[in-house]
Design a protein around this nucleic acid. Structure first.
Lengths: 150, 150
DNA sequence: ACAAATCCCGAGTATTTTAGTAAGCTATTG
DNA sequence: CAATAGCTTACTAAAATACTCGGGATTTGT
């Protein structure tokens, strides 16, 4: 039940773009450096996000990437689904075209995996990139607080 | 975010043992045949479940496996944790000795993965083998109902 | 005593996935 | 026209997955 680096890096990169939303395109090199990710690898990941319409790109010098919508219109679930595929602890309960199974009719485990799927999706779909930005600002404030009072 | 066959087969096997709870040991061959799993492979999985104290074994002819506790004392989460390891979408939020991360203090994504972990654990820990047996009986009743009335 | 049925254990292996790297092309800016 | 930066395809090393194989140890029924 582990997320691969695709999902993790993708969420970090999208969070980074959300932090710089409205400031024009951000180069992948900057994102990769700030988030500690291989630039080339990130290139592949963001390619999928662009094709899915979550980010837009500007080519050429001073180019880069930017969110295609406002940060509160993009959820973590959107990002994960593009990079990791439909949410599904097992293939027979995938959100999109689940694998057909003959025994599905009287399968007791299927119901369990559906609950797991829905609880994961519920969490990921409830968090937007804007939520993450606000959390980051709060973490920053708390850090400053301790800096001054210790 | 997929479960491997270890977890799936393990839950199926434990469910099978729950169905035959109180009837003496069940041979792995029978379990494997009924659940459609390779017997040799299942042997490896159940070895872990035995070491974890979830099943007990009887060697020799007419031997086999049986649940070590009543079906309502074993949750799906117990089984999954033995076979797939501690629940953790990413290593830094593993239930047992999570991987240390320097940036954890001001990491926005960590909170997300913790929520995912807790929601998965919540679902899996709330379902016992007895619940599964009752679900199976209900599915059976429904199937019979339709059989008579169609 | 012996064969059959089982559990038990460690090694080996083919396939797939993961997590990248490499190389080169295309578009835009100054 | 050089520098920057996106875009694309192909390759690859390492790990995980999902088994298979072979043989040993125990117990039961004949």
């Amino acid at each position: 039940m582990r997320l691969s680096t695709k999902g993790r890096y993708g969420v970090k990169a999208m969070f980074d773009l959300a932090l710089h939303y409205g400031e024009g395109p951000v180069s992948l090199k900057n994102v990769a450096d700030r988030q500690g990710i291989s630039e080339h690898y990130l290139e592949q990941l963001i390619s999928g996000l662009r094709k899915a319409g979550l980010v837009k790109s500007v080519r050429g010098a001073q180019g880069g990437y930017a969110l295609a919508k406002e940060p509160d219109k993009i959820t973590v679930g959107d990002v994960i689904r593009v990079l990791e595929g439909p949410i599904a602890p097992v293939d027979c309960v995938a959100e999109e075209d689940p694998e057909f199974c003959q025994k599905a009719e009287n399968c007791v485990t299927k119901g369990i995996w559906e609950k797991v799927r829905d609880s994961i999706a519920g969490v990921l779909d409830a968090i937007t990139l804007e939520d993450m930005v606000k959390d980051a600002e709060k973490l920053q404030r708390d850090a400053n607080f301790y800096m001054y009072y210790i």
